[in-house]
Write a protein that binds this DNA or RNA. Structure first.
Length: 428
RNA sequence: GGAUGGGUGGCUGAGUGGUCGAUAGCGGCGGUCUUGAAAACCGUUGGGCGUUUGCGCGUCCCGGGGGUUCGAAUCCCUCCCCAUCCGCCA
């Protein structure tokens, strides 16, 4: 959501932002609606003021028993009342149209976000470790299936495409990865571990920006109560501060959670159909920070380094990209993607996305903050990032730690979490 | 699923038709006192929109929407949410 005053003062720069997002100019339509709504509000207010003063006078006249005055005032109010409903209706309609228009527009890209229509304009900003070249490197699904611990067929039989069932060492590896990540973020980076609801209401998804525009990407459940399955823990973690006024001395707030995520993947037909790159259900360790506006850029860098640290400790080569204006998510002001090297695919694949949303989500959630001793409130900035996508991290471990005999060596930092298992081998 | 009670300012909690945007307490802020702090005491303290150079003024907001009325936090309708008890269940 946007600050109307800002658009009024800088309509051109707003449209530049929209253009960078690949959208037509919006400011003229917004300002026309805004002006109409304000004009109607003004007229409405004037009439209401007449009505209100007259009503007070009526009360006084009645108390005094002044029948003539009473009748005169009643007549005055009558004429005002005849005009009011139409005005109120028109004003409401304009305001609603304006709100609907605004709530469907994406966040403005930061000044240092590269322009571009899609991912081809993303820019690599750093790289860590040399990609391993492995002779005859296999893809993760070949490795997992050969180990007898990654089963797409059984999953499909009960749930359909884009589901996987893992067992034994691989199931354990998934849990080990998540525990390792949580321990790192809570133990070293100051994030508080949260175990949030996985089903949320409309308002929560509106706050983070998935609704009203991206319904088709979500799974909903239709019982007597309407819920949505979270597509990411960003939703419950960010909504912790929904409709709250935070004390600025309590910021930054840093939350982390390991949760399943559910995505319909509508529009992804034919993409990544093999293996577990793109599932309807996957688990992810999420990071969310709520910070003062001055601090969000610094926090964005910090959060990115927290996610990168996971890969460093797992000794998985990666590169970090800054997304172009056309490739960023709806609520993002600036986004870094971390891409991990997959020897089996011979390419880098996204494993984390870290976004600074500025005040975009805070406005939608009505989250405000206030300095100690001050009256005025303002909107904090929100950030979210994967730290990391657990399923894809598992893929990266399989492909980078695969051995010629088909087994997979457990990375050093995961050993404490694997109950003595140091090498994942084929089960009979 | 059945029954009941509720949703009021940063928080707690009064308020059942006419200066109620709202009593009070807590919290916050300012001050007195104190070497300093605490305590005590005094004062002050909602948000949005519009308008004004400014002081200010107008209007809307007591869960959402609609209605009754000259006038609604207060009455009516409707929807949402929360809590408690019972039943069922991990």
């Amino acid at each position: 959501m946007f600050d109307l005053k800002n658009i009024r003062e800088n309509p051109e720069s707003f449209d530049v932002g929209m253009k960078r997002r690949g959208l037509a100019p919006q400011a003229e339509a917004i300002l026309a609606l805004d002006e109409d709504a304000r004009r109607l509000t003004l007229e409405m207010n004037d009439l209401q003021a007449i009505r209100n003063t007259a009503s007070k006078a009526i009360g006084a006249a009645k108390a005094k028993g002044d029948e003539d005055e009473f009748k005169r005032l009643m007549a005055e109010v009558e004429s005002v009342k005849a005009k009011l409903p139409a005005l109120e209706g028109a004003q409401k309609e304009k305001a609603e149209t304006l709100r609907d228009l605004l709530s469907g527009l994406p966040n403005i890209p930061a000044a240092d976000v590269p322009d571009g229509a899609d991912e081809s304009a993303n820019i690599e900003i750093r790289r860590w470790a040399e990609p391993k070249s492995i002779d005859g490197a296999k893809e993760h699904f070949d490795i997992g299936e050969a180990l007898g611990q990654m089963d797409f067929e059984t999953a499909a039989a009960m749930s359909g495409a884009r589901f996987v069932l893992m067992k034994g060492g691989l199931a354990r590896l998934e849990r080990a990865l998540a525990c390792f990540m949580l321990d790192l973020h809570t133990g070293e980076f100051g994030y508080e571990e949260i175990n949030p609801p996985l089903l949320v209401r409309d308002e929560a998804l509106y706050g983070t920006g998935q609704l009203p525009k991206f319904k088709e990407d979500l799974f909903g459940i239709n019982t007597s109560e309407q819920f949505w399955l979270i597509p990411t823990a960003e939703v419950p973690l960010t909504n912790i501060v929904r409709e709250k006024i935070l004390a600025e001395e309590d910021l930054p707030l840093r939350y982390t959670a390991w949760t399943p995520c559910f995505r319909s993947e509508a529009g992804s037909a034919g993409k990544d159909t093999r293996g577990m790159i793109r599932m309807h259900q996957f688990s992810k360790v999420e990071l969310v920070s709520i910070v003062t506006p001055e601090y969000s850029e610094e926090e964005h860098e910090r959060m990115t380094s927290c996610a990168e640290e996971v890969l460093k400790r797992l000794e998985l080569p990666f590169r970090t990209m800054v997304l172009s204006s056309g490739d960023m998510g709806f609520s993002a002001h600036k986004t870094y993607d971390i891409e991990v090297w997959l020897p089996g695919q011979g390419r880098y694949r996204e494993i984390s996305s870290i976004s600074n949303c500025g005040d975009f989500q805070a406005r939608r959630m009505m989250t405000r903050c206030r300095k100690k001793g001050e009256k005025a409130t303002r909107y904090p900035h929100t950030l979210n990032g994967s730290g990391l996508a657990v399923g894809r991290t598992l893929i990266a471990v399989l492909e980078n730690y695969q051995q010629p005999d088909g087994s997979v060596v457990v990375p050093e930092v995961l050993k404490p979490y694997m109950g003595g298992l140091e090498n994942i081998e084929k089960v009979n």
